[in-house]
């Protein structure tokens, strides 16, 4: 399990914090691609407001069982609700953001985005 935290503490930040878990199988090329893609997306669009855990299902099959994961890689967004799943190597950034219900950073300062925060 790998924990990657990049959270700017503060009440406001906590509320809008993204808690993500990425389930992967071993160290396959697909795993590597998925991690790279996710890191890039986090840096570009979720900077300062996400918490990411990477779980290798070969080492922790029970975690996969509990979460009922079938496919790898699978990205799960636990918070903020609702729970969302994105499967695949995350190479399609637009779909990942759509799946996580994250607006691209370019529009994050728009009034629409801020109205969603509280």
């Amino acid at each position: 399990m790998v924990h990657l935290c990049d959270v700017s503490i503060g009440m406001e930040g906590y509320l809008s914090k993204y808690v993500l878990t990425l389930y992967v199988t071993g160290t396959s090329p697909r795993t590597r691609i998925a991690i790279e893609n996710l890191n890039r997306i986090c840096k570009e669009d979720l900077i300062g407001k996400y918490e990411l855990e990477i779980v290798d299902v070969l080492e922790h099959p029970q975690r996969a069982e509990d979460e009922r994961i079938l496919a790898t890689p699978t990205l799960i967004k636990q918070l903020p609700p609702p729970l969302r799943r994105v499967i695949g190597d995350l190479s399609d950034k637009d779909k990942v953001l759509l799946g996580l219900e994250v607006r691209p950073s370019s529009s994050s300062s728009s009034p629409n985005a801020s109205s969603e925060a509280p």
Partner: peptide, 29 residues
């Protein structure tokens, strides 16, 4: 090994994937 679809969770496919987790779960069980 409960691999039935979970109607409460919306799933989006974004890129290539395999069923490695399923296999790991079966092996585990």
């Amino acid at each position: 090994v409960d691999a039935s679809p979970d109607p409460d969770v919306e799933t989006v496919e974004a890129g290539g994937f395999d069923l490695g987790a399923l296999l790991a779960r079966v092996q585990n069980a």
